[in-house]
Design a protein around this nucleic acid. Structure first.
Length: 930
RNA sequence: GGGCGGUUAGCUCAGCUGGUUAGAGCGACUGGUUUACACCCAGUAGGUCGGGGGUUCGAAUCCCUCACCGCCCA
């Protein structure tokens, strides 16, 4: 027996266990023999992360695809796993250490610290898996991977070494985006530009050889800056080559106030004559643009900061060169160790004192922030490892250009190309400990060995040095080099790790066992679809494309489905700081996983953001209950599945109609999922289940089920059970728990054993269809709907059972009325239904197709309301006819429109006119208004 | 500054390649306890499809333009 309501909280865990015990999600489970492969790799969530709405959406859609294809008999793999999220995870553990008052990362050392991170990973790493499980994600958990697994780490080593040998990975000294809080380089993509209210400070730089006079502009050049403190590292002033105002001074020098360095005025097009004074200070060590200008003019590079972006001038050779050291002793004393912002204040104050500031304007500008550390990044000159992304991008772009990989929606391809065409070298080294340590070893002569292991390094290094090398930690090795111990050569390994996205880029093949040639790799690569958010196209999709093309010479997926961004009810991006985060776990608690999934799928229209509203989730929870109750009702009426049911043998029109509708719905759902139109698929199954099956079919079939025609009853029962089965299948990808439960429940009640769980049941194939059945049922449905509407609008009390007189019925229609007499009486609240040639007087009337339905309720029906209602419809129809006539009387329309469109209009006019005539006659039959 | 997207019922959204009476859910209003379901049933109201211009026999749909909103990139 079915309980009175569907209890998601109780049933979901049970179903989850059923799937688990059946090993239902294992790669290839439930597939047909020699089935085509269908695979998706999950976008790996952070190992210590927890499920947010974006995950919920993305994984619901993937699960819909996966369950759909699995039911279609394909050999399906949904490959799950997590990534190690280098910076984020390391930060979490460091914060924990700080909060617990334990030794810091550096105090405890690399090995100890990594033990702690692994411990944290073990402890919290399962959370997201459990949450995906909760959502019903049918991943093959037996194949779960982690980016720092042995196998995947092997892939990383292999890729790094091979790219290095191919010259596509190299070490370079360039300005990088440096995070002074996390003390690591980050890639361009990890930098977030934020609008900041700051100041534009206009400095006066005195011209060399002139006596500075704040009142005399000919004695100085004005430069504007948002970063006054960097003047300590200025090595030039740039003006535009065609800017005549500065033609005289190009090639001469200015003297930096406060410490007296002389720097040259150079002509460079970087300087924008429209902006500020037209002259711009150049600090090559602390600005990307300035660095380029400096290179062009061979300007010095003076770094004034340490890695924490605190001022370091004492002992700073580059800074001290060329200036009077005694004169700056006080300056150094005052500034040494100040952070960027304190130094800025100090410099501005001192410059002000000397009259070197022309003005200070409030200024809103874009400042680069590290997306993890949350502090402004500092361009910093360091040695880092780079991937030559430009070379790898070529084949990756070709794959999309040639259509071997398609973006859905396709306009995202443009975003992909825009970025790929302007791609910059990818900085892959990170000054972190948590991640894949870079397989590079340094020797005392500056030689760098890039190999997969110490053993491999030893082989080449021994030859290189002509002696047997040893390995040590960096400090030790450096000390050994210092000592210049004779004969023994000590190497140390690069301490840095790789960007997490480096390992993620290998995900579509590293998870399948690459670099081994595994059967899984052969079968499931290239994967079918990659589903992700647009914000990750650069970070991940593009890089997977590059690596996949380079190492397997085959694009990693045929389709990239870009889903929408999930926003809150008001359309704001969810963020913890705004406090508008909607927690999918809470929604699942309240409404069930199925309801959440259905909501997300129903709202996932392409090219739009998803705004999640609780009322929607609640509505779809109600939908789940609706189906539950419909099934329960069928059960109460002994509708039992018959495994030998033959749809083509069904005789009753009602049965033929509902099965036709089921077939059509199946086709709609199938087409929609194939086209990634999840909202359309969800809407189709929703509409069929609720509006067609529950509201009409079940109501119409009730008299049959409760009647005493045994044969008809038997057929209605088995048909009803069959259609419910079809609904369960079509709905399963969206609401897997509820449907699996009902699949089992209905089988049990029928005393049959299912061939398989629903998760492995075969997707409905195009089946029974009968166009003629629709005509009959639609007539009955229209008739009932009209009677209901007339009754309500004419203020017929609900308790009154009205007689129905149908005027102008054809022989067929008359037969239909008899056939469905019980249903009509029930649903239209009629006492009797008769057919007549003459309409009764003063009846409420409605036009249904070719017939007029009359409710002779003299004394009960409100004639005035009745007249008004009919008049309103007359007016509407007259307007329609007017519109059609204006088309049909337009010679251009007749001439240019397709013949069938014209014919369509003619038919419509005839229909409308016939209806109008009947309505007018109906009004005529009412007593004239008093 | 460059690019992308949005603006349709009170709210949240559909409406694909131009011809529909412009739809759904929620909300509102009216009525309902008829033997699955009040997480329900029946019915009703509510839209100059952001403004303007154009293409077309015909535009919510295609083009231009303006306004506002959002995102990405400089």
């Amino acid at each position: 027996m079915f309980d009175k309501t569907y209890d998601a909280a109780a049933i979901e865990p049970r179903i989850r266990k059923v799937w688990q015990d059946a090993d239902a999600f294992r790669a290839g489970a439930g597939a047909e023999r020699d089935a085509e492969a269908y695979s998706i790799v999950i976008p790996p969530p952070n190992v210590t992360g927890s499920l947010h709405m974006g995950h919920a959406l993305n994984n619901t859609l993937q699960d819909v695809l996966i369950r759909f294809e699995r039911m279609r008999g394909k050999d399906v793999l949904w490959q799950p796993g997590t990534d190690h999220a280098g910076i984020a995870t390391q930060m979490v553990v460091e914060r924990q250490l700080a909060e617990a008052g334990e030794p810091s990362r550096r105090e405890m050392g690399r090995e100890k610290f990594l033990e702690r991170v692994w411990a944290w990973k073990e402890q919290s790493g399962g959370a997201i898996k459990g949450q995906l499980d909760r959502l019903g994600a049918s991943c093959d958990w037996s194949r779960e991977r982690f980016t720092m697994d042995a196998g995947l780490s092997e892939a990383v080593l292999s890729v790094f070494v091979r790219l290095h040998k191919q010259g596509l990975i190299y070490r370079d000294k360039r300005l990088v985006n440096w995070d002074p809080k996390l003390l690591t380089a980050i890639s361009d993509l990890e930098v977030e530009m934020k609008e900041v209210k700051g100041e534009l400070v206009h400095f006066r730089y005195p011209l060399a050889g002139k006596t500075f006079d704040p009142e005399d502009p000919s004695t100085f050049v004005v430069v504007a800056t948002t970063r006054p403190e960097t003047m300590l590292g200025d090595t030039g002033v740039a003006v535009h080559p065609e800017d005549e105002r500065f033609a005289d001074v190009v090639g001469t020098k200015v003297v930096l106030p406060l410490f007296g360095r002389e720097i040259e005025i150079v002509a460079d097009p970087y300087s924008d004559p429209e902006k500020g004074s037209g002259a711009v200070k150049i600090t090559p060590a602390h600005d990307f643009n300035d660095f380029e200008v400096g290179k062009r003019h061979k300007l010095e590079v003076i770094n004034i900061f340490d890695e924490q972006a605190d001022v370091r001038l004492a002992g700073n050779e580059a800074f001290l060169a060329g200036i009077d050291q005694d004169a700056v002793a006080d300056l150094i004393k005052a500034l040494e160790g100040l952070d960027r912002f304190a130094a800025r204040k100090w410099v501005v104050a001192k410059m002000e004192e000397g009259g070197y500031i022309e003005k200070i304007e409030p200024h809103v500008h874009q400042v680069p922030f590290g997306d993890r550390g949350g502090v402004p990044i500092e361009p910093f000159l360091t040695d880092q490892w780079y991937v030559n992304a430009k070379r790898l991008a070529g084949p990756a772009m070709d794959a999309v250009r040639d259509g071997r990989t398609k973006f859905v929606p396709e306009n995202w391809a443009k975003t992909y190309f825009d970025w790929m065409e302007n791609i910059q070298p990818w900085c892959v080294s990170r000054q972190l400990w948590w991640g894949h340590q870079i397989p590079a070893w340094y020797g005392p002569d500056g030689k760098i060995f890039v190999e997969r292991s110490e053993a491999d390094v030893r082989r080449t290094a021994d030859v290189h040095y002509g002696t047997s090398v040893t390995f040590a930690e960096r400090e030790e090795a450096l000390a050994a080099w210092e000592r210049e111990d004779d004969g023994s050569i000590v190497l140390y390994r690069d301490e840095d790790v790789l960007d997490t996205w480096f390992s993620s880029a290998l995900w579509p093949f590293s998870t399948l066992g690459w670099p081994e040639r595994t059967p899984e790799l052969r079968k499931y690569y290239p994967t079918s679809v990659l589903s992700t958010g647009f914000d990750i196209i650069f970070f991940w999709v593009a890089r997977m494309m590059m690596m996949g093309m380079h190492f397997l010479n085959q694009e990693p997926f045929h389709t990239v489905y870009i889903h929408a961004l999930v926003r809150d009810e008001k359309g704001a991006k969810m963020s913890k700081s705004k406090g508008n985060v909607v927690d999918p776990l809470e929604l699942m608690d309240e409404f069930g996983a199925d309801a959440l999934r259905f909501t997300l799928a129903a709202m996932a229209a392409q090219g739009r953001d998803v705004k999640i509203a609780k009322a929607r989730v609640q509505g779809y929870r109600n939908f789940a209950t609706k189906l539950w109750n419909a099934t329960r009702f069928a059960d109460l009426n002994e509708c039992r599945i018959d495994p030998n049911f033959d749809p083509s043998a069904v005789r009753a029109t009602l049965s033929r109609w509902i099965m036709t509708e089921a077939t059509r719905t199946g086709r709609q759902v199938t087409d929609a999922i194939e086209a990634y139109r999840f909202n359309d698929a969800a809407a189709a199954i929703y509409r069929f289940t609720w509006n067609t099956f529950c509201d009409w079919y079940l109501e119409l079939v009730k008299p049959v089920l409760m009647g005493d025609d045994g044969a008809a009853k038997a057929e209605a029962r088995v048909t009803t059970a069959f259609v419910i089965d079809e609904i369960l299948k079509l709905l399963h990808p969206f609401m897997p728990f509820l449907t699996e439960e009902l699949w089992a429940g209905t089988a049990e009640r029928a005393g049959i054993t299912r061939e398989s769980l629903l998760v492995h049941a075969r997707w409905p194939k195009a089946g029974f269809e009968d166009d003629d059945a629709a005509g009959e049922i639609n007539f009955i449905v229209d008739l009932i709907a009209s009677v209901r509407s007339v009754r309500a609008e004419s203020n017929v009390p609900a308790s009154v059972e009205a007689e129905i007189v149908v005027v102008g019925a054809s022989a067929d229609e008359e037969a239909w009325l008899v056939q469905h007499d019980a249903a009509i009486r029930r649903l239209a609240r009629a006492s009797a239904i008769s057919v007549s040639d003459v309409a009764p007087a003063n009846a409420a009337q409605a036009v249904v197709g070719n017939v007029v339905v009359c409710l002779p309720l003299e004394g009960i029906v409100d004639l005035a309301a009745e007249r008004a209602r009919l008049a309103k419809e007359v007016a509407r129809l007259e307007k329609d006819i007017e519109k059609i006539d204006s088309r049909l009387s337009n010679p251009k329309f007749l001439e240019k429109a397709e013949a069938e469109k014209v014919e369509e209009q003619r038919e419509k006019r005839a229909e409308t006119e016939a209806r109008l005539d009947k309505l007018k006659a109906a009004i005529g039959r009412l007593e004239p208004a008093a």
